[in-house]
Every structure is written in C-alpha cells, then in structure tokens.
C-alpha cells in the first residue's frame, strides 16, 4: 500500500518536473500541438498555458501563430461550384436509374 502511494507520488513529481523544465525552446517545439489541441497530457497542457501567460518571448509568437492559422482557415477554403453540384446530382440520378 505504502509503496504504491509512494511510487505514484514519485511518478507525479517526475511528470511535474518535466513540465516545469519546459523552457522557451521546449514550448516552441510543442506550440502547434498546443494550438491544435492535440496534446494528450493535461499536465503538459497546463504547463504550456502557464508558461505562455508569463513569458514575454513566447506569448507574442503564440499570438502570431494563431493569427496565421486563423488567416489560413478563412482564406484557404474553396467551396464546390454550383455547376459541379448539379453535375453530380445529375450523374447520381443516372446511376440510380441504371442500377
């Protein structure tokens, strides 16, 4: 019992230490995964969030990367043209009547 508790505490401390050791370079390495919400470890997520809140070097870059990704999401899309929709519906009707 004691051993299990002790081991758990030790493991947690190691994880915390890892998270605490994240320097600016470490943050930059994980920045996209953080923005994309692709990090599984909630400790790592909160460690990065804490760092970004405090760090005058990383925070502006974080904001810049977010602006860039917002820009891509807004400006990179091309909807299917109406004539393509019509063409496809027509083709599917033909397909249906043949089968």
């Amino acid at each position: 019992m004691m051993t299990g508790w002790w081991l758990r505490r030790k493991r947690n401390r190691i994880k915390e230490a890892e998270a605490g050791r994240l320097d600016c370079a470490g943050i930059m390495e994980r920045l996209y995964e953080y923005i994309d919400e692709e990090l599984d470890d909630p400790r790592l997520v909160s460690a990065i969030r804490d760092h970004l809140e405090k760090c005058k070097v990383c925070f502006p870059q974080y904001e810049f990367e977010k602006a860039f990704l917002r820009f891509l999401a807004q400006r990179g899309a091309n909807g299917a043209p109406p004539r393509l929709r019509r063409r496809i519906f027509q083709r599917l009707l033909e397909e249906e009547s043949q089968s």
Partner: peptide, 9 residues
C-alpha cells in the same frame, strides 16, 4: 454529399 465542399477544396 454534405462533404462536397471539403472534397472540392
């Protein structure tokens, strides 16, 4: 067919 825009893009 709701994914037509994605496919086209």
């Amino acid at each position: 067919l709701v994914h037509l825009d994605t496919l086209y893009n």
